[in-house]
Design a protein around this nucleic acid. Structure first.
Lengths: 117, 117
DNA sequence: GGCATATTCAACCATCCGGTTGACGATTGC
DNA sequence: GCAATCGTCAACCGGATGGTTGAATATGCC
């Protein structure tokens, strides 16, 4: 796994990690807060965050005993360019993206296990 | 692995599979021809193609004893929309894409093992 | 100092993944 | 009919992944 695209796409292939990225869209978060909505151990989330950081999709900065996670959307640029080359997609459709978020975001108001089923 | 994004991103995470997609950009190909530039067994390539087909990134149609593989760029649309939402990337830059292809495409003129290493 | 909080480390487990080889099922062509 | 070609299936292997638990390491607070 040398190519950056490998690690980026692999990181994006997991629904938990995509959900985390969606959460970080709204604001930077501490590890514990990231983990809160998931029914998964903190260590598990910590691993996911390490993978996201390894792919450059987030950065983590420790302030005091709290480690803050910050989205790094630039890391997606290369992957996005690669993908768009195949589809000649029309210009970004943010409405479609909103719909995606609605479908993908952990239902912050109920139990949640990343995906319904 | 239920979400289509899971399978699409997972399929894209492998350099062999991305190389195959790049090859199919140019034209539809038979399985044997897809396999030719790789130093990998036909069965191995066949598995990769099955994964790409499972993600909807290609379709396969059998004509006679030859199975033709066809790129299905539409399958990337959802993933592309998802990604672009994070970056608000500037409009598609096809030049950047060409550079990517140049870097990623199997060097059809030498041995090749997906990545030079 | 001593306890609580925040996060990771280490070991472990089950499962998936990428790859191989060898046998097999279709299809074509002589 | 028979042999060659195209492609997949099945079994197997080693290594990565996603998850767990329990101990360990920092840091903050009183």
């Amino acid at each position: 796994m040398t190519d950056p695209l490998d690690t980026v796409f692999a990181a994006l292939a997991d629904p938990t990690r995509r959900a985390i990225l969606s959460m970080l869209l709204e604001d930077d978060m501490a590890v514990t807060d990231v983990a809160e909505p998931f029914q998964m151990s903190l260590a598990g989330i910590s691993k996911h965050l390490a993978i996201l950081a390894g792919a450059g999709l987030i950065t983590q900065e420790k302030r005091g005993r709290v480690k803050w996670c910050k989205l790094e959307p630039d890391a997606l640029r290369a992957a996005s360019v690669w993908m768009q080359g195949f589809g000649q997609f029309e210009p970004v459709n943010l409405d479609a993206f909103e719909r995606f978020l609605a479908a993908e975001l952990p239902g912050e108001d109920e139990g949640l296990a990343v995906q319904g089923d």
